[in-house]
Amino acid sequence: MSVRRLAAVQPESFAFTPENAAWADRQIAKYPEGRQASAVIPLLWKAQEQAGGWLPEPAIRAVAEKLGMAHIRVLEIATFYTMFNLEPVGRHFVQLCGTTPCMLRGAEELKEVCRRKIGPERHVTADGALSWLEVECLGACANAPMVQINYDYFEDLSPEVFGKILDDLAAGRPVTPGSQNGRQMSAPLGGPTTLTDPALYERPAPTKGTSQEVPDLQAAGRPSTAAQSPGDPLGAASAKEEKAINGKDSREKREAVAATAQDNSPDVTGSKRVGPKTGTGVRDPEE
């Protein structure tokens, strides 16, 4: 994250449009008398929208005055939250996720695309169309790598596809948000890979006295606790046995690690642990 400070060049003034002012009044009215300051984030957000995606200094003052707050209080908030942009952004503001899953899936190459097509981070293109910023996880890891452009997510990007999106945006052509490789949401590429047996979806004729067959779509996909066919890896051992084996195995490992750590590290807590506790915070049912 970069240092967030007000931009050097600022507009002369800022005033909410009548519609936005009315909207702001409705937000303020949500809070009890004397608690108007609670509306500061919605108002800043509206001001950012109105100002073209960034928050000029006069807007900070305007919000402070509307809410009866000290200017510095609003500046504190505007500089704290990273979704408030303190310097101008492009009409299409690309927020590129560079956190681990996206990085592993090729975010570095997307950054290269940005640098080539837009310029350095936070640079606005001459026509004002594009600018980009690397941000922390946007929560679409299953569709990594991804970017957010204004309010839309563009997922499953490749450098070529992403480059084309940027070109289209710069040229004013329509683009389609969402996954760019044909997936539906975060469903598997090329359609479902499990539960594909049509028989699962056929509703069997009701048979009297047997509830074992579980004629329920929701329950159909889950491994039954009862032992199933020997070929089924989940059903091979009973859940209890499996847990006992794995639990013991991993627990021994953890104990070994903990013991080493305790020997090597200075005593943090002041009291050496006596029992072979695992320290995972999860209580082992076998204990």
Binding site: M1, V3, R4, E57, A70, H71, I72, L75, E76, F80
Partner: peptide, 19 residues
């Protein structure tokens, strides 16, 4: 007279007055 504040966050936090 609330003139002082802490702007930024984390390592970039700074105590200042408004502008």
């Amino acid at each position: 007279v609330p003139d002082l504040g802490a702007i930024g966050r984390g390592e970039d936090m700074e105590i200042t007055t408004y502008l």
